[in-house]
Design a protein around this nucleic acid. Sequence first.
DNA 1: CAGGATCCTTTACGATACTG
DNA 2: CAGTATCGTAAAGGATCCTG
Lengths: 121, 121
Amino acid sequence: MKKQPVVNNTNICRTRINAIKDTMDILSGKWKFHILGTLMQGGKMRFMDLLREVDGIAAKMLSKELQDMEMNKLVNRTIQNTKPITVEYEVTEYGRTLERIIDEIAIWGIEYRKGLYEKNS
Amino acid sequence: MKKQPVVNNTNICRTRINAIKDTMDILSGKWKFHILGTLMQGGKMRFMDLLREVDGIAAKMLSKELQDMEMNKLVNRTIQNTKPITVEYEVTEYGRTLERIIDEIAIWGIEYRKGLYEKNS
DNA sequence: CAGGATCCTTTACGATACTG
DNA sequence: CAGTATCGTAAAGGATCCTG
């Protein structure tokens, strides 16, 4: 493979940027952080619980996002042997490694976003 | 048997979840973290630099996302008095408060995502 | 160089209805 | 309850051309 000529301001460490892309690729869409945040607080939750708690999401979307995250091992789906059957979702151990990201997102939302309004008004 | 109103799943602290929603509302879309990450590393960058560095983005999207973030005071746009004119973008001080989030996203991308492949293969 | 305008295709998302 | 099916809108994404 050919080496890049190391020079100008466009010469940036791609590792970090690729890592950001990698992460966002599996967390894309407007719901995943929201769902994960809810699930991290709520522990095991059923479909309907999530539908109620994740504000504004439609069943189709929730279903799709959960399947998505299940595929990526972020979330676990368990069918309970009840009548009628219930299904429980929870964050996997692997999914918990996202906790720091979600913490920071929550902190920022509380801390800094409010600050902007104060500055501008 | 009486049903326990257990540690009711629906009884969740909304503050945190609303904060997540707030944050993601202004960082929605698949590009903003990517652009911000690039801009944080690259310092002042011109439109064309970003177009080259933000892998896969189209000019139209980049333009739109930058305007979006400019509106939200995350990014600053400066027109240089050159010929032909050049425009420089940089992260604002306020935008820098997102650094911790972006750091965590980058760290996760490097640290954990790789691990999953190893486990599964 | 920094973009906006246009056109067209493909996903993302949303509302409602329906099924095991 | 836990979803899927269906239909419709909106936004993303790509290609090409255009302008100050």
